[in-house]
């Protein structure tokens, strides 16, 4: 085990896979000479050369499409979306080509591509640069969508993503790049479709993924300290494929659930989680499933407005207390 930042863990996964497999290349805006806007790919161009660390013009639809073409034809490209906000320009390629090619070619074509980048808000980037798109991409069959929250997971899931034969939407928690954690040495892959119990508890299930997992751990500590409530914190890690089993088992134990997400509530991941719980654990529920989501507004700029727009400790505590039928 070594203590690493989320950023370095991610970078080490990319470099290890490039070392291991010559068909792996990186492609994106300013990932080479500039070092990557978030320094995820810093200096990799010196190590692997410009044929494998490909700087592109600012044209997401074109270079994402070209990377899909590379993936169809024997390579394993990892595309950097400088931020997922720009992926709307590439979403036609991602959804209409990458996700569907295997199907409409009758299984003749595979698209082993990874599209990665920071997702979510929290640093005052305002309306056009703040989105959480797990639910959006999670809707499309043919894609896999993951959102690791820890340095260990970001490395292990990137190794899995690059080796996966299908397109993977890899949503990094941009706000967590600098956070540290223990990361196993070597080839420690983390499978898709398996949620992680980040904290065990018996009284209520708090469910999220990405940056919000840390928020839930904070909430769980506070509930334990102030109300003697033992919350179980579940980190989904993978949105598609989805680990229903871990959620259902947890709710069968705790009988209460709060689902937290940065994205908007309507037609979202939390909506799906709530539906799965009522389908499979209805008789075990002692309270309606609570959802805490981003405010139904474009992301605001001002710091206080931005904080108010996203789930915070107090909102999650309030939701937990509603589910626990407590005043708090």
């Amino acid at each position: 085990m070594a203590v690493m930042t989320y950023r370095d863990a991610l970078k080490s996964a990319l470099a290890d896979e490039m070392e291991r497999d010559e068909s792996v290349v990186l492609i994106g805006e300013d990932i080479g000479l500039y070092g990557g806007t978030h320094l995820i790919t810093d200096k990799l161009i010196d190590r692997f050369g410009k044929k494998r660390v490909i700087d592109t013009p600012i044209a997401e639809g074109g270079f994402t499409g070209a990377a899909i073409g590379m993936a169809m034809n024997g390579m394993k490209p990892v595309v950097e979306m400088m931020t997922w906000n720009f992926s709307f320009l590439a979403s036609d390629q991602i959804i209409q080509n990458a996700a569907k090619l295997r199907y409409f070619s009758g299984g003749q074509v595979s698209v082993p591509i990874v599209i990665r980048g920071p997702n979510g808000g929290g640093v005052q980037l305002s309306a056009q640069h703040t989105h959480s798109l797990e639910g959006f991409y999670g809707q499309f069959p043919g894609l896999k969508v993951v959102a690791p929250a820890t340095p260990e997971d970001v490395k292990g899931m990137m190794l899995t993503a690059i080796r996966d034969p299908d397109p993977v939407i890899f949503m990094e928690a941009g706000a967590l790049y600098g956070t540290k954690g223990e990361v196993p040495e070597g080839d420690a892959t983390v499978p898709f479709g398996k949620a992680r119990i980040a904290r065990e508890g018996s009284d209520i299930s708090l469910i999220s993924y990405g940056r919000q997992v840390n928020l839930l751990l904070k909430v769980a500590d506070q509930l334990a300290k102030e109300q003697d409530v033992q919350a179980e914190v579940i980190d989904l890690r993978s949105i598609r494929p989805f680990d229903s089993e871990t959620i259902i088992e947890s709710v069968k134990k705790t009988n209460r659930a709060v689902v937290v997400q940065e994205q908007w509530r309507w037609f979202s991941v939390a909506s799906e989680v709530a539906a799965i719980i009522q389908e499979h654990a209805f008789d075990y529920l002692d309270a309606p499933v609570e959802r805490v989501s981003g405010a139904e507004v474009p992301a605001p700029y001002a710091r206080n407005l931005e904080i108010a727009a996203f789930p915070g400790v107090s909102q999650v505590i309030e939701a937990a207390n509603r589910a626990l039928y407590r005043k708090g």
Binding site: G61, G62, F63, T64, G65, A66, A67, I68, G69, M70, A71, M72, N73, G74, M75, P77, D92, Q93, Q96, N97, L101, F104, S105, V109
Partner: peptide
């Protein structure tokens, strides 16, 4: 290698396939 229904959207695929060759 296909066969695509969205006008223009196969063009980058062909360019990427060429890069791979």
């Amino acid at each position: 290698w296909g066969g695509y229904g969205i006008v223009g959207a196969h063009i980058p695929l062909g360019v990427g396939m060429a890069y791979s060759e």
